[in-house]
């Protein structure tokens, strides 16, 4: 529940302050999912040193299934948090019918999966949770800022706009804006879906390869 609280506060402050709740809704929802994904994957760092993950590392269970299990579990958690945030959709003027809920829920799951994969790839390489916090502040949060969550691609300028084009999160926000029928749904629905799914898949493969790699430095 704590994961929903801070994006909710951000959203309400920025939304009411600028009198445009709808514009920042998708961004806040993605932030909720991102926080949840980060908090779930950050535990990898501690679990590997002292926790159940240790036994997994020396068990014959394939590393790939360990990765898949962790990512699916954490993604499901992030997904539930994202769905919780849907309860505030009416404030943004969005009403979701039963049938519309399916593509919305599917999009949120895909985004949860992608961000969890991103969290895994970062956490696996980290030796300390402090390092992860650094990455979060210097990479993940800025990445979210230039994804269309705060200002749309259409009004962006110069090199920031170029970053937005290559930022996979831009496509996640756009995907949500498409399914929620919110403004600033750009790039198109199909490219948004494709890029988000492809990004998730690449991260999943990277996670699997990293975890299966034989290293001369201990995994724990």
């Amino acid at each position: 529940m704590g994961v929903v609280a801070s994006p909710l506060v951000f959203w309400l402050l920025i939304g009411y302050g600028s009198n445009d709740l709808a514009r920042f809704y998708s961004g806040a929802l993605v932030l909720t999912v991102m926080f949840s994904a980060i908090f779930s994957t950050i535990s990898i760092i501690e679990d590997r040193r002292e926790g159940f993950l240790l036994s997994m590392l020396v068990s014959p269970a394939p590393r790939t299934s360990m990765v898949l299990g962790k990512i699916l579990g954490a993604a499901t958690l992030a997904w539930i948090q994202g769905l919780t945030f849907l309860a505030f959709a009416p404030l943004a003027g969005v009403s979701i019918g039963m049938l519309e809920l399916i593509p919305v829920a599917a999009s949120i799951f895909l985004i949860s999966f992608t961000l969890t994969g991103l969290g895994f790839v970062i956490a696996w390489r980290m030796n300390s949770t402090a390092g992860f916090h650094g990455i979060m502040n210097l990479l993940l949060v800025p990445m979210w800022m230039v994804s269309g969550s705060l200002f749309p691609m259409a009004t962006a300028h110069g090199w920031v706009k170029a970053i937005m084009w290559v930022n996979p999160l831009t496509y996640s926000i756009s995907l949500l804006n498409h399914t929620l029928e919110l403004p600033n749904a750009f790039p198109g629905a199909m490219p948004s879906l494709f890029v988000t799914a492809a990004f998730g898949l690449v991260l999943l493969l990277a996670s699997g390869m990293m975890a299966a790699q034989k290293a001369t430095r201990s995994a724990a």
Binding site: G51, L53, P60
Partner: peptide, 15 residues
């Protein structure tokens, strides 16, 4: 090796 070896860690590996 993993199939034939039991490992007890210095740190805790229990939930």
């Amino acid at each position: 090796v993993r199939r034939h070896v039991g490992v007890v860690f210095q740190t805790q590996s229990l939930d």
